[in-house]
């Protein structure tokens, strides 16, 4: 009998600490599936963020490194330059990649580092209790925007992917979502592409994933999926950006 579905080798069989309906777990699995399919588990080195995914290296079954909040792309640059034969990726939230780590992000992209970036946009800071992120939507309530994000005071949702797509050394940028089975399949395809680009030495590739945080959106898991589809993806349109 042909086996068509099983637990990815690159994903450890442990329970994660993520809340029900959280997008992190889905994306972890997609990365593990891609790593298995490309047969690169023994070459991969993950760089984990500071954010809800801080211990992602305990969920994957390959080498992993910690980075201080926002510094993942500097750490990944150091690893990849010294070990170009390895496949190095960062996994970062929106606070990590687009607030405290903005400089590291833009300059790693501008140098065209041959890296893969998986960027989890959940429009809030999950780990620290649901504060405003650079990607928080206008009007969205968070613990630091209690009456809704007011763009006149706090700026607009930051479209870091569109910004990065302007840089000549950037190879590939795509925004995907994991709110429905079809979108999950598209997300996996994009993640796969971002890893293949690195294997082929094509340079900086980033996949932004719109990812639910039911806990700090104060919604049920189901409502959160619908919110991504109906509201969030209007502000952050899905598709290939570069």
């Amino acid at each position: 009998m042909k086996r068509i579905f099983s637990h990815p080798k690159a994903l450890r069989k442990v329970a994660t600490h993520y809340c029900p309906g959280c997008g992190h777990g889905i994306v972890h699995r997609l990365i593990a599936e891609v790593v298995d399919e490309l047969r690169i588990r023994q070459r991969v080195i993950a760089v984990a963020p500071v954010g809800c995914a801080v211990v992602a290296y305990h969920y994957w079954d390959f080498d992993g490194c910690e980075a201080a909040h926002g510094r993942a792309l500097a750490v990944a640059t150091g690893i990849k330059r010294f070990r170009p034969e390895n496949i190095v990726f960062t996994y970062q939230g929106d606070g990590d990649l687009a607030a405290i780590g903005t400089a590291e992000t833009i300059h790693a992209a501008n140098r065209g580092e041959n890296l893969t970036v998986i960027f989890i946009n959940n429009a809030v800071y999950g780990m620290t209790g649901g504060q405003m992120a650079p990607t928080t939507l206008s009007g969205q309530k968070t613990s630091t925007t209690p009456s809704g994000r007011q763009v006149s005071l706090t700026g607009y949702p930051l479209k870091i992917s569109e910004l990065l797509a302007q840089l000549p050394a950037v190879r590939y940028v795509e925004r995907v979502s994991v709110h429905s089975p079809q979108e999950v399949m598209r997300a996996k395809k994009a993640i796969r592409q971002a890893f293949i680009n690195q294997i082929d030495n094509l340079g900086f590739s980033l996949v932004e994933v719109l990812s639910a945080c039911p806990t700090y959106w104060y919604m049920s898991a189901r409502q959160a999926m619908d919110w991504v589809r109906d509201v969030m993806s209007k502000e952050f349109p899905l598709g290939r950006i570069r």
Binding site: C65, R71, A74, T77, G78, I79, R81, R83, E104
Partner: peptide, 26 residues
């Protein structure tokens, strides 16, 4: 060998952290 002019000292020391983690004399 590898030389990088980083965008800041923050970035430079974290590049060193990555290289050291990968086994380099950094």
């Amino acid at each position: 060998r590898i030389f990088i002019q980083a965008e800041s000292e923050l970035s430079a020391i974290n590049m060193v952290l990555g290289a050291a983690a990968a086994g380099a004399r950094a």
